[in-house]
């Protein structure tokens, strides 16, 4: 069987899987961004209780494995009556995990905004909330976008784990093809190329463009 024939037979399955991978990736990214902003801000709160909750969340999700979290959410939560569809459990676990890493990026970027900016906002008598949303966060966004570029790639890679709870993403499909055909190089090799193309030629250029756009918009360029 030539590689072309292999693609003719299994290509559509892998294409379906790729679509699901992309959907899982996008949803996981949304969850990660929300979690990151929320817990990143909580980590900077003046209230020690709020700060403590955020710290515990971040340490638990960064201190254990994504796979453990995924299995816990999918296999253990139903025992407490919280039944999540495998599709939802998949992107939710990836997003919650990566959001914990993102929260540290948010926190670091906010703290990297020069002190003078905080002081100028005080001198204009802005409220704490307005100071954060109008002065600090826009500048923090520009600072944190480059590391987010790396994190987003980690999210894409992280979604491969959802195959282990039988979400029919690319990883899942090529594993099925491998079991059926034992054409491992073709199956796994194709998936490697697809992930590589997604990461290197779609996600990374998009993040770079976003960086350029934001720094131009924010007047740093």
């Amino acid at each position: 069987m030539t590689y072309i024939e292999f693609l003719q037979v299994h290509g559509s399955r892998m294409a379906d899987g790729t679509v699901l991978t992309v959907v899982q990736f996008l949803l996981a990214t949304v969850v990660a961004v929300v979690v990151a902003v929320l817990f990143g801000l909580m980590r900077l709160s003046r209230n020690p209780g709020v700060r403590g909750v955020a710290t515990v969340y971040i340490e638990i999700f960064r201190g254990t494995s994504l796979l453990v979290q995924l299995f816990w959410i999918f296999f253990v939560l139903p025992l407490f009556g919280l039944n999540l569809d495998k599709f939802v459990a998949g992107f939710l676990a990836v997003g919650l995990n990566m959001g914990a890493y993102g929260a540290e990026l948010v926190r670091g970027a906010i703290r990297a905004v020069p002190r003078g900016q905080w002081e100028a906002a005080v001198a204009l008598n802005m409220t704490d909330r307005k100071r954060m949303w109008r002065v600090i966060l826009p500048q923090a966004l520009v600072i944190m976008l480059p590391p987010w570029g790396n994190l987003v790639i980690e999210i894409l890679k992280g979604t491969a784990l959802v195959a282990l709870i039988s979400v029919a993403d690319l990883m899942f499909e090529v594993r099925q093809i491998n079991i059926a055909t034992f054409l491992s190089v073709q199956a796994f090799g194709t998936a490697l190329i697809v992930y590589y193309v997604l990461a290197r030629f779609l996600v990374t250029p998009f993040m770079r463009a976003l960086e350029r756009f934001m720094s131009r918009k924010i007047g740093r360029a």
Partner: peptide, 11 residues
């Protein structure tokens, strides 16, 4: 301020 502290993301 000594270092102006203008908001860089605004005109």
């Amino acid at each position: 301020f000594q270092h102006f502290n203008l908001f860089p993301h605004m005109t």
